[in-house]
């Protein structure tokens, strides 16, 4: 009996932690005013937020006596895909020149997003200011 009570409290605590981190992520998304800084809030705070929610779900099913490991997979897929979407959003904002121009790379000539082929220069977005 006491096992179930402790389990229920742990699940509730994890749900609260998860919800807290998710709401901080949303606040960050609304508060920051530049696409690059805005990118930071959901990619970071989202991982632990959703991680805690999934952990709560896993713990709940174990307390109920029917183990579930699907959540591990969701977490793994999330950790693999989140950096890729963040990377692409960042590349788009570099390409559209909506952020500060990055400094030159220490090795090689330029960043791959700025490395536009000669024949495409005319249709590429131009430097602002």
């Amino acid at each position: 009996m006491s096992f179930e009570i402790i389990g229920t409290y742990a699940v509730a605590l994890l749900l609260l932690i998860g919800a807290g981190f998710v709401i901080v992520g949303v606040i960050g998304l609304l508060k920051f005013n530049d696409p690059m800084t805005r990118l930071h809030a959901p990619t970071k705070v989202g991982t632990v937020g959703i991680g805690a929610l999934l952990l709560a779900s896993m713990l709940y099913s174990f307390v109920q006596g029917e183990g579930s490991l699907h959540e591990m997979l969701i977490m793994a897929f999330l950790f693999v895909t989140a950096p890729i979407s963040a990377h692409f959003i960042a590349k788009v904002s570099i390409h559209m020149r909506t952020c500060e121009t990055p400094p030159a790379p220490p090795q090689d000539t330029t960043w791959s997003t700025l490395d536009v082929a000669e024949e495409d220069r005319e249709i590429a977005p131009q430097e602002q200011g």
């Binding site: 930071h40 963040a86 990055p102 090689d108 960043w111």
Partner: peptide, 23 residues
Amino acid sequence: AGTITLTPGTVSCDLSNEGHSLL
């Protein structure tokens, strides 16, 4: 690059054209 994106306040944004630097 994945690790950098998942950890504190850093996002990996781009590779240099020959892949020897990370932004």
